[in-house]
Simulated assay, not measured.
Amino acid sequence: MNIAFYGSSLLSSYWNGAATYYRGLLSDLARRGYGITFYEPDAFDRQQHRDIEPPDWAKVVVYPATEDGVRRVIAEAAKADVVVKASGVGVFDDVLIEGVVAASRPEAIRIFWDVDAPATLAELAGSPDHPLHRAMSSLDLVLTYGGGPPVVEAYEKFGAARCVPIYNALDPSTHHPVTPEPRFKADLAFLGNRLPDREERVTQFFLMPAARLRNRAFLIGGNGWETRAMPPNVRALGHVYTREHNAFNCTPLAVLNIARDSMASNGFSPATRVFEAAGAGACLITDAWEGIELFLQPETEVLVARDGLDVAHHLEALTPERAGAIGEAACRRIRAEHTYERRGAEVDAILKETAGAKRERAHDAA
C-alpha cells in the first residue's frame, strides 16, 4: 500500500519534536513494503535546520506554505491507499484535514494521527465547529503517539470509529550508546524546546534543583531558552540536532525528562526523549506520570521525581556506578520491548485489518 503522510517535518527536528517518531515508524513501514510519501511545508526555518536529507525509504515533498502550495499537495491524496493527516503541521492544519479527506478515494484508509492528543482533545472540547469534528465520521482511524485509555475513551466520545495509541519508541540504529563528548559534560541535562505548557514544570523540576545544588553542573538544550534567566551553574546550548542526541544523553551523569502539562496530567504519554535516552544507556530521571511502569521500572530502570526536591535528592544520592546500572537496565528493557520495529508491526496489522474490513463493507454494499 502507498501512504500519503501530511506532517510537520520528516527532515528537520527544529521546533519539531515529532521528527524522530515519524522517522522510526515510517522507515519500519517502508521495510515492510509500504510506499511512503511525506508532505511537509517549508515553514518555521525547518528546511534551514535539517537533520537529514531525504532518505531512500521515503519520497519527501516540501511544499510552499501558501494556499496554492497546500492545495497542490492535497490533490495528491487521491493517489494513495492510506492517507494520513498528522496533528501540528503548523500551517493550514484545518485546510489539510478537510482537504485530504475530500480528495482521498472512498476505498482509501483515512487516518488522523495525533502527536499531541491532550491538546487536540482540549481544542475539540472547546470548539464545537472544529474541522476535526466534521471530518471524524469520514475517518477510519485515529492513531495517537500516547495517551492510553483516557485518550481512547475521549476520542470515542467524539465519534472516532477506532482510536489506537501507537507509542513513541526506540530506533536502535539511530539512538545508541556512543563515546561521551566533553562539551556535554554535566551532572544533569535536559533537552526540550521552551513551550508555554512546559516552562513552569522546567522551572520546578530543573531550574529549582539547579539553584539548590550550586556545586553541580546543569545543561539545557532546545530552542527558546537563550532569553530565560538561569542560575549560573546552568549552561544553555540552543538547538541540539538529532545527530548529537546520543552524545548529549551518554555524557552527563543523568538526563531529565519533563512532560508537558497536558501529558503529565493525562499520563501514558512517554516522550520520544525517554526512549532515546534509555536507548543510549542514560540514567534517566523523569517527572511522575501515570503508566510509567508500562515502559520502565522505577528505581531499577528509571528514577521518578514528584517535584524538584526529589530531583535534587536523586542527584545528590546518585553515584556513577548506580547511574551506569540504571542506564544499562533501561537500555535492555527498551531494546527488548519498545522499538519502532514492534510499533511498525502493530501499525501494519492495524492497516491490513482496516483494509480488509473496508473491502468487506464495500462487497456487502455492492
Rank of each mutant, 00 (worst) to 15 (best):
E316S: 05
Y241N: 14
R243W: 14
A278H: 02
G324K: 10
V240S: 12
N233A: 05
N233K: 10
Q297C: 00
P232L: 09
G279V: 07
D310A: 14
A277S: 15
R235Q: 13
N266D: 01
A329F: 01
R243S: 15
L315A: 08
E301S: 05
V240K: 07
R260G: 14
A317W: 08
G281T: 04
A317S: 15
E316I: 13
L256D: 01
T319L: 02
A323Y: 07
L318E: 05
H313G: 02
L237Q: 01
G308T: 08
L284Q: 08
G281D: 06
T286Y: 09
R235F: 02
E328C: 03
S269D: 08
A330H: 09
R306I: 02
M263C: 10
L303C: 07
L284T: 11
A329G: 02
T242Q: 15
R322G: 00
V304P: 12
C250Q: 02
A325M: 10
A305G: 05
P298S: 12
T319F: 08
S265V: 00
Q297P: 05
P298N: 07
F295W: 14
H239V: 01
A282L: 03
E299Y: 03
T272L: 05
D287V: 04
A278M: 11
L315I: 09
G238T: 10
C250F: 00
S265D: 08
L296R: 05
R322M: 11
L284N: 00
F275M: 09
D310S: 14
E301C: 08
Y241W: 11
T272E: 11
A305W: 12
L296C: 12
E328S: 12
A271I: 02
H314T: 00
L315N: 06
R273V: 08
R235Y: 12
S265M: 08
V240W: 02
A323T: 10
A236N: 02
G327D: 06
I285G: 06
E293M: 01
A280W: 09
L294Y: 11
A325W: 09
L309R: 13
S269G: 03
P270T: 06
F295M: 05
G238L: 09
A236R: 12
A236E: 09
H245Y: 15
R306A: 15
G291V: 07
